[in-house]
Amino acid sequence: MSVGSVSIRTRIADESTYIDLRISHPMESGTRKDSAGVVIPSWYLTDMDLYHNDVRIGALELGPLVSRNPAISIVLNGGQVDDIVKVTWVDNRGEVGESAVALN
């Protein structure tokens, strides 16, 4: 996976939709040092927006202490097969990305 690519897995059960996100990102906290002792600059996801059928339903702010290649699980109340779930993200360098899937 390239940096910023998003894997979205979904499962509908019990009138809920379980969504597992996996974003490829280094999530550098800005406190680690390289082998030369130089601090590695921070580089981490800061914001994600969640959409259901093009309606923004939530937002997630992240800090630098989330693990590398973040795995994030959320739950929707409801959801039907073929509904579209979309995730957009931005990091502290201003890079952006998005991914969408149809529920199955």
């Binding site: 992240l62 989330v66 973040p70 699980s73 959320i74 929707l76």
Partner: peptide, 25 residues
Amino acid sequence: RSKVATLDTSNAMLAPRLSTHLQLE
């Protein structure tokens, strides 16, 4: 930087649940 994550669940479509992983020193 103590704040790890904030989930806005004000829309009823989003359940008040969140799971992730942290890197702790």
